[in-house]
Design a protein around this nucleic acid. Structure first.
Lengths: 241, 241
DNA sequence: CGAGGGTTTGAAGTGCATCAAATAGTGTGG
DNA sequence: CCACACTATTTGATGCACTTCAAACCCTCG
């Protein structure tokens, strides 16, 4: 697939652009650049002046904020097809977090200016953006709730459930999408805590863990364990995109 | 002041409506109802069908989510002039949290339908709403970071700083806006922890606490203590509205 | 095979929660 | 104005969850 084709296809798949006009997509595509980043590369840091937004083509991007003494809080970890940096339009044109490739990663880089203009002129896009923001907001509310009410093993169980096909019946195999260390930071805990909490979850629910794969006889094992301490009914919707 | 006057004035003061047309404000005002709620009254619960949004006229509204076993996570505590329930337009028309008056409280109740229509038809309002959502998003990101990186005394210090006039030089007196128990839940900790953490903060920074008032010789005491473990530079903007 | 990261395990410490009880503060009716 | 009831707040004692530091183990890949 040529770069131009890939660009157009990637843009079309973004929920934000589902009502976008072809001319807008074409305009974006024309200004798009594909960037390849190696593991550990930092695309931008918190408070940088924002001129681009991005779409992940493959690999993984970690969004995070960090303090002077180096402690970091992971905001999110994004797979292919996800967009980031787009909200800076409304935030003094600076990024509200830092972004780093945690794997060799390709991203599409696009000018915020073009998006900004379109949002101001095309109500449909503004509405799509509002939906996206509302969805993100719900996700964040849920995240805060989880950090407050769930303990480490329960948070892991909840994370696994969101990775699984939630309509699936019977036995399932789940693959962790990235390093356990990274999952730990995504869930706001230390790698050691993650390791121990996973053992506890294993013992409490009867799931089988082997390296990066997790096998369940049924989702109910996890649902009973994790969803009891959550205000959302299972299945909790995937709000990530 | 008559109810009609108060209604109009309250609407005009909402950031979301700063670019609203007079006819829209008039339309909203016509459909507005003032409700008085006593302490403890629950306006709606998480997942209720959403038909109204609200503006706090006086008193305090607690937004929260709770699990089956009664544990609750406080999302926010809103003073006069704040709006809530408005995002349900984009969320399947259900409320994403429960709302309770924590004091005798008056709210303005307004039909979501009218707002929804206006957002769809008036790009200016859609943009205002986007700004509001972006601001809220930043606030949530910060909240998650604080819960991850700050300990209890630091979170209290940060909370006090946000209550203070951040440009003020020299000595300041800060009044806690509501019950210490409520502040504790707002900060995601137990009342006992709050009490002990406040003592620790007092001892570490030299602030003076007497009931619900806190006296500082200067903001620097708190800034050094709390902002060291935060990714935002002081002064961190008030993002609440 | 050996180096280096990721992962697990152990031991010890810290922070917060929990349970229980004392104390302070507030509003009430007498 | 006082006594009482009730709630908010503080304090103490204890336990659990998570972190931290250290070391071992495992896996992968050159």
């Amino acid at each position: 697939m040529s770069d131009a084709e890939q660009t157009r296809k990637s843009l079309k798949n973004i929920a934000l652009f589902k009502d976008a006009s072809d001319s807008f997509i074409a305009n974006l595509a024309q200004n798009a650049r594909i960037q390849k980043h190696s593991k550990g590369h930092v695309l931008f840091v918190n408070q940088d002046k924002a001129e681009k937004f991005y779409i992940v083509l493959n690999g993984w991007i970690k969004l995070f904020r960090e303090t002077l003494d180096g402690a970091q809080a992971v905001v999110d970890i994004l797979p292919a097809g996800h967009i980031f940096g787009e909200t800076s339009i409304f935030e003094d044109d600076v990024y509200p977090y830092s972004a780093e490739a945690v794997e060799p990663t390709e991203v599409l880089s696009l000018p915020l200016e073009v998006l900004k203009k379109e949002i101001e002129e095309n109500p449909k896009i503004a509405l799509s953006m509002l939906s996206a923001m509302a969805r993100y907001r719900r996700q964040q509310d849920r995240e805060i709730e989880h950090r407050t009410l769930q303990n480490a093993p329960q948070r892991i169980g909840c994370f696994l459930l969101r990775l699984a096909d939630q309509k699936h019946e019977g036995a399932i195999t789940i693959h962790l999408p990235y390093d356990k260390t990274l999952v730990a930071s995504r869930l706001g805990m230390q790698p050691e805590t993650f390791s121990r909490a996973l053992s506890k979850l294993k013992q409490a629910t009867g799931i089988k863990v082997k390296g990066a794969t997790v096998e369940l006889d049924s989702l109910d094992q996890l649902i009973n364990y994790s969803c009891a301490v959550c205000s959302s009914e299972f299945p909790c919707k995937d709000l990530s995109q």
